[in-house]
Design a protein around this nucleic acid. Structure first.
Length: 108
DNA sequence: TATTTGACCAAGA
DNA sequence: ATCTTGGCCAAAT
């Protein structure tokens, strides 16, 4: 049944987490890209989903940033998010991801 | 069921 | 450059 095209998902959260988990270390993605990859345009809902379950270390929520390259938000605090990203080799200058376009992860 | 809200986005002023 | 506005769609209330 998966035609591989749209595959709309009732459980957006599960789809979001699944996509997010495929983002490799040292790379980042955006709320919009994530939503689009899941076949939806609910950019804001994605952020809400991530905030709903931020305690899961299995899900690298810290790799999700804004389309502008800014950090966006993090339930545990932006300082923590920044630290985690930098620990993966991502440089952040004045709250913005350096080489953002280059570090962007592309979904299939 | 209807209204409000949100870890957003893009375009205007 | 920053600030405001309208829009987006799923989830919470």
């Amino acid at each position: 049944m998966r035609t591989g095209v749209v595959a709309k998902v009732a459980n957006l959260s599960q789809s979001v987490y699944e996509r997010l988990c495929q983002v490799p270390k040292g790379k980042v993605t955006t709320y919009k890209a994530l939503a689009t990859a899941c076949g939806t345009r609910a950019y804001r809902a994605v952020g809400k989903i991530l905030s709903a379950n931020p305690n899961i270390p299995r899900v690298p929520c810290h790799r999700v940033v804004m389309s502008d390259g800014r950090l966006g938000g993090y339930a545990r605090g932006l300082a923590e998010k920044r630290r985690l990203l930098e620990a993966e080799g991502v440089t952040i200058v004045d709250g913005t991801i350096a080489e953002f376009e280059r570090l962007r992860w592309r979904f299939d």
